[in-house]
Amino acid sequence: MQQPSPVPDSAAPLVDVVDLSVRFVSKDATVHAVNGVSFQLTAGEVLCILGESGSGKSVTMRALLRLLPETARISGQVRVDGRDVIAMAGNELARLRGGVASMIFQEPMTALDPVFTVGQQIAETIVRHEGTSWAEAEKRGLELLELVQIPSAKRRLASYPHELSGGLRQRAMIAMALSCRPRLLLADEPTTALDATVQIQILLLLRRLQEDLGMGVIFVTHDLGVAGEIADRVAVMYAGRFIETGPVVDLMEGPLHPYTQGLLGSTVHGGMRGQRLTAIPGSPPSLSELPTGCAFAPRCPQAMDVCQTSEPTERKPRPDRTARCVLVEESIQAA
């Protein structure tokens, strides 16, 4: 049985985000999609962003590569591999995307071009980013398909994306994302649309690739079980904020924030038959009219007066854990 790897603490961060906010401004409304997110990712670490639909997971991740539409207003600081992403010009951004950092999606066809074969697309990426010869790039393409365990890889290089089954297409997209040996892989629910027996194959593949290639990975999911299989560290997102972070084992065994506790109680798993689920009442707030105070207060069984008036600051009960809830005590600094 395998356990999450310990997080190296001395290395310089691969990703450094300070007070990131993203708003979408239009005539009718302002959507506060991300509201002050700060975190660091070390090289070789897997961070899962866990949250329900609309909580801001995808927008947070896209902001790291500035893959957001014109209407997005980004503030805060984002550094990837030491470089300031917010200040980057267009050509620098293009080099970043698919170079140092690349991204995979739930729907592989967002990343694959239907009119070119898998082999052509991979080779093209390699030639563009690294200026190798076409022959050299094609050779790497074959190695990549073998790396992601596509059977009869040679033959598959000549396949068009639509000729592949769901699982193979997902593998082809991963191969493409790895083509320039990224140090950072951003994965946005890459297994959500897959059947159970295929999902576990892709999760195990990603975990192995991450270890072998030493990549840092940010993995977005709404599924606690998926996070349990792949994360070193988990950040729980609610209404555009990281409301709790911590190592995966600690967080799943001892959640601190009432929302995380509710999420664990709501997640059906074996052995819950006959028990009433401890559902969280209500539904997440609209991001165009965020409540003042704690965004979870309208649904929180433990809410108090103070929760309605001011947004709880981030507490650090232990060096490796954070929570935004007034019930969580700040640790007393040991002498």
Binding site: M1, I200, L203, E229, V248, H269
Partner: peptide
């Protein structure tokens, strides 16, 4: 998924 990060698949 195992739901137990100490005992992953």
């Amino acid at each position: 998924p195992s739901m137990n990060p100490r005992q992953r698949t």
